[in-house]
Design a protein around this nucleic acid. Structure first.
Lengths: 107, 107
DNA sequence: TCACCTACCTAGATGTACTAGGTAGTGTAG
DNA sequence: CTACACTACCTAGTACATCTAGGTAGGTGA
């Protein structure tokens, strides 16, 4: 019964977009996404952490542990060169797609 | 190794968008999508036919067989009332999403 | 003591796209 | 008359991402 939602894709590109600005850790990514999109994009942690792992597995991001005083340690993620390239390409194909979709949906 | 693609969602909404304009049959949907999006959205038949079936199963479209002289018969699909409502809602949430995504990706 | 927040993680279910086929009818070029 | 191409439909199986629903652990404040 649920209506079809075009916004259910591979969210990896959004994570690349955030990490393209600065190094971030997983939990920060979750709250940044929510803040920046005024809660429109509200990915649960169970979605974000596996997604970051996939990006790492595919060589698009690099991770490092950082100890923090008086808090659990954080796993910071940063783009690799391949990640930056993927972000650029992904952004372009995303814009191509939105233009095409608006052509179909009526912009 | 493949780069993450934000444009892999549930394409059902696009089909609703097409059918919102006029009744169409499956094969027509495939070629219309390709034509209208200048081949950016190129869904294979193996994607479109099952998607139409799902929309029908969910009560968003209604199907009828039409005999054609000198050609294989066609299965025409049209929106139901629920389908029109789903299209309106889907369009809105799609626009909310693109705005939010551009906020993250850098528009 | 209890609740809550940060910060990370995973197993399993669900669901969709896509691959790679298949059937059948019509028209056409060699 | 044969081979190819095009229309028009269909399905089984695979791959993969989201999401649910948990869990672990350290720290803070009532």
């Amino acid at each position: 019964m649920t209506a079809p939602r075009l916004d259910r894709g591979d969210y990896g590109l959004l994570l690349l977009g955030l990490l393209g600005e600065r190094e971030m850790y997983g939990y920060e990514v979750v709250s940044e996404l929510r803040a920046r999109s005024t809660a429109v994009i509200d990915l649960p942690e169970g979605t974000v952490y596996p997604a970051l792992r996939r990006l790492e597995r595919d060589g698009l991001v690099r991770a490092r542990w950082v100890d923090v005083e008086g808090a659990p340690r954080r796993r910071y993620y940063a783009l690799t060169t391949a990640g930056e390239r993927a972000l650029t390409e992904g952004r372009e194909s995303w814009h191509r797609f939105t233009r095409a979709a608006d052509q179909v949906l009526g912009g």
